[in-house]
Design a protein around this nucleic acid. Structure first.
Length: 126
RNA sequence: GCUACAAGCCAGGCUAUCGUCCCGAUGAAAAUCGGGGAGGAAAGUCCGGACAGCACAGAGCAAAUGUACCGGUGAAGAGCCGGGUCCCGGUUGCAAAAUACCGGGAACAGAUAGUGCCACAGAAAAUAACUGUCCCGUCAAAAGCGGGAUGAGGGUGAAAACGUGGGGUAAGAGCCCACGGCGGUUGCUAGUAAUAGUAAUGGCGGGUAAACCUUGCAUGCUGAAAUGCCACAUAUAGUAUCGAUUGAGGGCGGCUCGUCCGAGAUCCGCCGAAAGGCGGACACGGUACAGGGUAGGCAGAUUGAUCCUGAUAGGUAACUACCGGGACAGAUAAAUGAUAGCCCACGACAGAAUCCGGCUUACCGGCUUGUAGCUUUU
RNA sequence: UGGGGGUUCGCCAAGUGGUAAGGCACCGGGUUUUGGUCCCGGCAUUCAGGGGUUCGAAUCCCUUACCCCCAG
């Protein structure tokens, strides 16, 4: 119960192969600053990753900041989605890509992740 | 105390909760506990290395690229320190082009090795020609014409054939002389040297080498996604060629020696009377090509020419030697974040990816030291 | 990580040391009853920014900024 807000090594999308597969064959949708790729898997797991393009943000500091904000928002809100997956016996790979060109506020990112998780929950339910 | 400049240092702090990467301990595991976790520029990639692979395992020449006052320093450099020469600015002073002091700058080898270029203007942009001046001839004389001498007088221009004065001459010219300027050669003195001073000698034919170039020196090429190992995986593995001697010729970073490959010939086997023709298999190993598979892990890889600091010694200094103390992240889709509170100067530029030494650029503000100026007090 | 190229008027661009071509667009005038077409004229004081070499830089050199491309 206390370890719900984690984002450790085994909860991140790490394999290059899995990411390539996700981009090639996964489904996708766009919600304000993010484009989301997702793909259901057989094992019970929930892996996530974040990316920011060099084209929109030239400075590494800005890219790191957005990735950290997105990861923080995901960490705090993914609990319910994971419980649902465990109940249904499904797994899910998710990848976020930031598409805006200006630096966002943290609240903006947090709200966007809330909406995305709501949508993912509906998709899992089907 | 204030202002300006230069150099160096710091780069918000603390507490709580949640979260993250690495290391250690406990544990069968899950996990828990403890410790550590971006910079002065981590950046640009402008230089120099370390390290690794390939080539050569050699020598010489050429090309290409870079570089260029001298000495030192350092692993090395286009870095740093010191010195020289030239240029610019300031101060003192009646006066500072050359001379005193202070500060700043310099891609400061060569223009008498050669080639090219120098718009417009100007007679002419480097060799002359044109115009002019003077002499002679022609002619009664002048002009004109012809022959000869001469070289800066010719409005320009960024730049005009060492400058000024005198002599000299038919007219002139460094043609000669005096003073001054510039650079060459030789000698002496000082200095490690660049160079400076001085004497003699023989000159004074613009600029541009960040135009080509010449001279000296340096450099093999490619970069950690390099590279090595293990596991998985095709495949009881496809094609070509090699694993005897000589050798036209060809390749090896361009060339030569050198070295490697090599049609053909020789050799062996078969056919054939001979000439000649065909073949040198399989297996194993090497090389090249085609196709297929894998794309996980470990090493490289984070302590090294290390950095900071104190004392001593050497040195003008950069720096060096030695002794003592302290510090140093290590991921592999990639770690430092979020929330709340308090304090203050209200927080800039900005995020490691193989590692070091420099340079350059970005930067809110604060502190220290030095120099100069102004003001106050003694 | 390593390498290559570019930046000239509002847009497309030429210009390889000597007054910065040209087209489109724009502005003014003419022709026409009006508009279009056509004709004439105008439009770069800073050639991405800074510094240097040169008598003289868009051009040569150094440096900074931005943009594009390539290899794996």
């Amino acid at each position: 119960m206390t370890k719900r807000f984690t984002i450790g090594k085994n909860e991140r999308l790490k394999s290059r192969k899995a990411i390539d597969l996700l981009f090639r064959e996964g489904k996708r949708f766009t919600i304000s600053p993010f484009r989301v790729f997702y793909c259901e898997t057989g094992q019970v797991e929930l892996l996530a990753g974040v990316g920011v393009g060099t084209k929109n943000f030239k400075k590494a500091v800005d890219r790191n900041r957005i990735k950290r904000q997105a990861r923080e928002a995901w960490r705090l809100q993914k609990g319910q989605l994971k419980e649902q997956l465990i109940q249904n016996g499904k797994g899910l790979h998710v990848f976020f890509i930031f598409t805006e060109k200006s630096l966002p506020a943290y609240e903006q990112v947090f709200e966007a992740i809330t909406i995305i998780i709501g949508k993912l929950k509906k998709l899992v339910e089907k």
